[in-house]
Amino acid sequence: MAFDAQTATAWITASEAAVKADEARLTGLDAAIGDGDHGANMARGLAAALTNIAERAPSTPGDVLVAAGRGIVAKTGGASGPLYGSAFRRAGKALGDTTSASADEVGAALEAALTAIKGLGGANEGDKTMIDALAPAVAAFQAVAADGGPLAAAAAAAADGAEQGLAATVPMQARKGRASYLGPRSVGHEDPGAASTALILRALAEVVA
């Protein structure tokens, strides 16, 4: 399966559905160490992404992701808005004008998303953020793609990597955002941003399976 505009749109649609279904869990994670709005913010942002895609009717997967990113930046409200919004926009720009991206190209787009989030937020692996789910996911995706593996296998590996990365955030102490004020009291909880990243990457794996 190739990653075309229809697949990209299906990914955002599935992500919105997954976040909406798990909105209460995401908000609960965020209530433990954040300000308790992550579930609602992500549901609102991804709904705006779908509206923006529907209005612009983009014809390439890159333009779908750029449209999604613009909707997310405009409507999410919290810090996840600019972070996810920039991630999707940079991923979309990395895909360029292609109408059908290969596994390698999708891997490069995911890497561009990771670079965007690191550049904007200044966080790194181990800071208990969405990067702790996305970085292992990108590495796993690219490892499969580099071996000539198909998109479905690469995306499945990325989703597994993200979920393992999410689990690894539990013993971490937060060094970014509101949770960082809690110091050692941030230990023992999953990071909500890593949790939403894991949902979005699982949605990708399911859409391209």
Partner: peptide
């Protein structure tokens, strides 16, 4: 703080 900084940086980009 927080999203204020990230959103302003995004607008600048």
């Amino acid at each position: 703080m927080g999203s204020s900084v990230l959103t302003a940086k995004t607008l600048l980009e």
